[in-house]
Nucleic acid binder design. Structure first.
Length: 280
DNA sequence: CCTGAAACCTGTCTGC
DNA sequence: TGCAGACAGGTTTCAG
């Protein structure tokens, strides 16, 4: 599920505490459990276990799709990839490295309070890093799309500096941090731009519209607590606002022509072929 | 520099 | 009913 709005929703929930669970902030770790070794990208397990014991969680933040836990020493960083999820549960049992409480649990942090952090990830693509230097993990990310400093002029110049298809470029986290398949399709449709348009073929007006659409869709996603699809459900509502994503065959909300699904950069891509023309 | 394919994984759905 | 194949919200790596 996780694109920027979904990660932001998870972050806010962990910060304030949800469903009777307490906030992560202020929790002290007394032990860890790792059930899938590859989930821990850095450092190795022994160092991780030794270092995490006694750590306090001081703050939570987000950078692109990364979730960042600021500890009293170093930072614990998560990337949820395709199917990762984080929540806070009671009574995880003793620290161990086998026999998770639920089938796809990959990592636990056990807190002195009796609560614990659960990283659950069906497809095992998610990763965690413990590091003193967050930039070593996500230092190559592009700007935050909702950052005030990202204006029309800057975005136009960013697009001009590349000669790439719009959709793969927007999905490239080193170009812009946080967009995934859903919000990219929705933003391109909202801007009436074809996903195969070359980035440096956009004029200033088109670039401005695209940035506005990206920010509009991300904000709409956050307002709706993200999108809930299939078996990964977090109570989000943005799926009810999809204009093109997973709307193949449904009439375009503007012109009525059926929405089509094509393949762009190996990703399923939803467009209205009438509203989003490739040729000027 | 740019594009496309493959790999990492499990679960679900579709079609024969 | 059963089973092979396609596909899924992401990212990295490699070939051309």
């Amino acid at each position: 599920m996780p694109e920027l709005p979904e990660v932001e929703t998870i972050l806010r929930g962990l910060r304030i505490g949800i469903a009777s669970a307490p906030s992560l902030i202020g929790q002290q770790v007394y032990g860890t459990s790792l059930f899938w070794s590859k989930t821990l990208a850095f450092p190795d397990l022994d160092l991780f276990k030794g270092f995490m014991r006694g750590r306090y969680i001081l703050d939570l933040s987000r950078r692109g799709k990364y979730l960042v836990l600021k500890l009293d020493q170093d930072f614990l960083i998560f990337h949820l990839r395709m199917s990762g999820d984080i929540n806070v549960q009671l009574s995880l049992g003793e620290p161990r490295d086998s026999l998770p409480n639920s089938p796809h649990d990959r990592l636990y942090l056990h807190f002195n309070s009796g609560w614990g952090l659960v990283f659950n990830d069906t497809r095992k693509f998610g990763r965690a890093w413990l590091t003193p230097d967050p930039e070593s993990v996500y230092g190559n990310l592009g700007p935050e799309p909702l950052d005030r400093g990202l204006n029309h002029s800057t975005f136009y110049q960013m697009l001009q500096a590349q000669s790439r298809q719009l959709k793969p470029l927007l999905l490239d986290q080193s170009f812009l941090a946080g967009l995934g398949n859903i919000y990219t399709d929705e933003a391109l449709f909202d801007a009436r731009l074809h996903p195969l348009r070359q980035s440096n073929s956009l004029n200033r007006q088109e670039a401005a519209t695209l940035l506005d659409s990206i920010q509009k869709m991300l904000n709409l996603g956050i307002t709706n607590n993200g999108a809930s699809i299939d078996w990964v459900y977090r109570g989000g509502d943005f799926q009810n606002h999809f204009q093109v994503y997973q709307q193949t065959g449904h009439p375009c909300p503007y012109c009525g022509h059926p929405i089509e699904k094509i393949k762009v950069g190996q990703r399923g891509t939803h467009i209205c072929p009438v509203c989003q023309r490739l040729k000027a």
